[in-house]
Amino acid sequence: MKKYFVQYKPFLLFLASFFGCYILLTVGYQYFLNSFGDRNVDSITQVVAHNAEKIISWFFMRVQVESVINEPFVRMYFQNKYIIRIVEGCNGISVVILFISFIVAFSGSLKNTLLFVFGGSLIIYILNVFRIAVLTILLYYYPEYSHILHGVFFPLIIYGLVFILWFIWVNKFSKYAK
């Protein structure tokens, strides 16, 4: 049995660090979410919604974000029509947690790891805000495609980006790149 632990040590260390980091970040995030209660929207989701609102307003389109007390989501109105609700799962934090856990599991130098975690998380956040803004506009004009847009196309984009960032990390910066 010891032979197998020695043989698979890198894989076992990867699993332990990935799941350890993932669980730690998820528990911390859940603690943060619990501070808002079940009936109110968290501050990160509100910031994401307001940033998406800003992006849409750059194009001189009528857009409004509304948070209502005792609703765990933010309403997004486009051209004076209620289009989407932005819930906690839309803010991208769970994707960032997954991204960070993988980077930590394949860590490199502390400096490279911290810079890549920060830079990658920022890229994911920005893409997610743009995703919400574009999705709002597309659902206004093409509501019949809501399932394919929200359920297939945009998750493909966000998780595709995460995969590309992981690929870059493993091949250029992790301790396994050499």
Rank of each mutant, 00 (worst) to 15 (best):
M1T: 11
K3S: 14
Y4T: 05
Y4C: 08
Q7I: 13
K9Y: 15
P10Y: 11
F11Y: 13
L12P: 09
L12N: 11
L15N: 09
F18N: 12
F18C: 08
F19R: 07
Y22N: 10
I23T: 13
L25H: 13
L25C: 15
T26S: 15
V27T: 11
G28N: 15
Y29K: 14
L33P: 15
S35N: 07
G37H: 13
G37N: 08
D38E: 15
R39I: 15
R39K: 15
D42C: 08
T45Y: 06
T45G: 09
T45N: 11
T45D: 11
H50I: 14
H50S: 14
A52K: 07
A52V: 14
K54F: 15
K54Y: 13
I56T: 07
W58D: 07
W58P: 06
W58S: 09
V63T: 12
Q64L: 12
Q64D: 10
Q64H: 08
S67C: 10
S67K: 05
S67V: 07
S67G: 09
P72E: 12
P72A: 10
P72C: 10
V74D: 11
F78W: 02
Q79K: 10
Q79N: 12
Q79M: 13
K81L: 07
K81T: 07
I84W: 12
R85E: 15
I86M: 07
V87P: 08
G89A: 09
S94M: 13
V95K: 05
V96S: 08
L98V: 12
L98W: 15
F99P: 04
F102W: 12
F102V: 13
I103A: 05
V104M: 06
V104L: 03
A105D: 05
F106C: 03
G108K: 00
G108A: 02
L110K: 01
L110A: 03
L110Q: 02
K111E: 10
T113D: 02
L114H: 03
L114G: 02
V117D: 05
F118A: 10
G119N: 04
G120E: 08
L122K: 06
L122P: 05
L122T: 10
I123E: 01
I123H: 01
I126A: 03
I126S: 01
L127E: 03
V129Y: 00
F130W: 02
A133I: 05
V134T: 09
L135Y: 03
L139M: 00
Y140P: 01
Y140E: 01
Y141V: 00
P143K: 00
E144F: 02
H147R: 02
L149P: 03
H150M: 05
G151D: 02
F153Y: 05
F154I: 00
P155R: 00
I157L: 03
I158P: 01
I158C: 00
I164D: 05
L165H: 04
L165N: 03
W166A: 05
W166P: 05
F167V: 02
I168V: 12
W169V: 01
F173C: 05
S174D: 11
S174H: 04
Y176H: 12
Y176S: 14
A177T: 11
A177G: 06
A177S: 13
K178T: 15
K178G: 15
